[in-house]
Design a protein around this nucleic acid. Structure first.
Lengths: 371, 371
DNA sequence: TTGACATGTGAGACCGGTCTCAAATACGGT
DNA sequence: ACCGTATTTGAGACCGGTCTCACATGTCAA
């Protein structure tokens, strides 16, 4: 058995010595740059193979300044939404010869900040980030100032002039809401998983994600143009943690003037709605209609199958990586925000609203609000 | 506006010069090693802050030889199974002060090899890998030989003496099969997503994953001890690609002596079973009973809810990272394989087998095999 | 006062590559 | 044979940190 020393690795100098050439020459052959005669090339390659040489990419990156690596910070790897996006990123990156380092922030701005710092420290050539908050963005501004390319994924930050790739959430929310209105609904809830101590929506200052704001605007706009009064009252936030989501949904459905339809911000929330409904003995779409963001694979096998807003998640990742690579290699035209379209996939979770006893009271309530 | 040069970053020499101390002293303060007087510390820290100094981790790792980073190669990031495992890894790693670099192999041994090479090149302190094949393992042997700690996740490799963390697949498959047998089933299929050109199982040589082999053994053992003849005939492989899975399942269910129960290797396959059944106009558990590996969150909201084998996936990741960190920092007791237990969660997808016309023929068939 | 010893600081080697530059060699034409 | 040019090669600086070691200073006991 070959007792290779486990500590010290083979360096280019070792190879050079063994091949009987200078370090510089060996480096040229192994690094595929400069020139070397065929016979020398062969000698060096043979020695490298024999010694089991593997280049130290760290050293290489340090001198060249390029690491051929892009850093990615996503909100939650466990969420299949980001899983798909990451695959898109990986595919595009690898196709361009880049590696990917992934971190997840758990949607926590502080963790995100730390992750970005680490990746910058590792001298990645560029960054793709799904920012956890539009408020805490100093670290991203710093990245931009340092000149390292940065692409925002899924969400934008208003005052940060970098590339971004997002889906058209406003228009998606509007379309979904319109579909519910066309089915006869007037009391439509939007339940978001976004972080928030207060589950009740009181205004834009609470919202720290561009997507959430856009969706709320979409729901409100569609409702308003259908003559629905005060649609904001059915908006709920912070349904992220499992137990909490359940509570928020149950309270919403058991309260006075309960909504007859729910738009869920992702499939995790939709799942929570499903479970809560089962617990309350209510059915879809008889008692409640449901639409969810994200066409997760399982949404077509529930009963009833869920009507969803399909987002081009893989493309979102793929495009963002392509843009980033272009910035790294090429140069700077002005940053753009690419908006990808979504599709409403109609399945069987939308029905006519049930006849609610207190329906008249609600109208009165609405009327009172006007007067 | 401060026009920070976008190209050249601030180095420790810049900070030293600005603070009026030597490079060595500045490094001691900023690197938190050696000694420095309080007043000098203050000066250096102030200068670093003013200049926006960020350490070059590459340079740091190069001299120290440690990168405080562990590399992870998983089969498929999109699969929620691995998503959970990765979170477990991240949590344990970060708790110990390590960063995580993630790659995915797409269950392709060649890609896995490339990913391992890249990570080794980046001088990660250790590796966690879910090996795509028990046959192509030279690269993993090389890692082991180089002395860099390696932990296998979810799967083992017989002749490779490194740590591993897996679930007890044999016992899980046995328990699931027994549950089906107790419900009266005698024709039980196991459908695996594992890569294979031939969907029919002909022997162990086809199987390139330890988990798959264990599960097959589990199913066969439970069947045999219940007196079921030739249980292997209902084993199908390669249900990975979407279209193919559908075809394999449909053929199995429409063939002579069709199985009355299916054990699916993961929830993606289970989903495929659901869809195919719907297409064929069959129902669960009336026409077919179903059990699946992996307690994906949605398996409780289908109708009927699916009986699953819950695996401690997060723990799998968490443990593997802990073991790896222990190896990196501490030293070598002999490598161990940690086996975590699974739980059978009984829901409503198991029922009595339907009265099949050709039931008698099957028994004859079985009997014929004995004579 | 002097010596023993702890503490703070700077000079410079080093990690393992890349890259510049000059010297050495090969080649081609007259 | 001889010169001009192209190609191959080696010496050594460099990237940005860490680390060793020598030297300067401060403290305290004899």
């Amino acid at each position: 058995m070959k007792r290779t020393a486990s500590k010290r690795l083979v360096t280019i100098s070792d190879v050079a010595q063994s091949a009987g050439v200078s370090k510089a020459t060996a480096a040229r052959v192994l690094g595929s740059y400069g020139t070397a005669s065929p016979v020398v090339k062969e000698k060096v390659r043979e020695a490298a193979k024999r010694l089991g040489y593997q280049a130290n990419e760290l050293a290489r990156s340090m001198t060249t300044g390029k690491s051929k690596t892009i850093g990615v910070v996503v909100g939650d790897i466990e969420n299949p939404y980001f899983g798909q996006a990451v695959r898109g990123i990986s595919d595009a990156a690898h196709a361009a010869g880049f590696d990917v380092i992934l971190s997840n922030s758990g949607e926590d701005a502080a963790k995100e900040k730390a992750a970005v710092r680490v990746l910058m420290g590792k001298r990645v050539d560029g960054l793709i980030v799904t920012p956890a908050s539009v408020f805490e963005t100093q670290h991203l501004h710093e990245v931009q100032r340092s000149g390292r390319p940065l692409v925002l994924l899924d969400r934008t930050i208003p005052d940060l002039a970098v590339d971004a790739v997002v889906t058209d959430d406003r228009q998606a929310a509007e379309a979904a809401t319109r579909a519910l209105i066309e089915a006869g609904h007037r009391r439509i809830a939007y339940i978001s998983a976004t972080e928030s101590e207060d589950p009740i929506y009181r205004g834009p200052h609470q919202i720290n994600l561009s997507t959430v704001m856009e969706r709320i605007e979409g729901v409100v706009a569609a409702s308003r143009s259908a003559g629905i009064q005060h649609p904001e009252r059915y908006i709920r936030l912070g349904a992220h943690r499992r137990g909490l989501g359940d509570k928020i949904i149950a309270e919403l459905l058991q309260g006075a003037d309960r909504p007859t339809a729910i738009l869920a911000s992702d499939t995790v929330v939709a799942l929570e709605v499903f479970k809560t409904l089962r617990r309350l003995g209510m059915s879809i779409p008889g008692d409640l209609s449901l639409v969810a963001f994200h066409d997760a694979d399982w949404t077509s096998v529930t009963s009833p199958p869920i009507t969803v807003i399909a987002q081009p998640v893989y493309e979102l990742g793929f495009e963002s990586a392509q843009i980033l690579v272009r910035r790294i290699t090429g140069m700077g035209d002005t940053p753009r925000c690419r908006v990808l379209a979504t599709t409403l996939i109609k399945r069987q979770s939308i029905g006519a609203p049930p006849e609610l006893e207190d329906s008249g009271a609600v109208l009165q309530d609405d009327a009172a609000k006007i007067g």
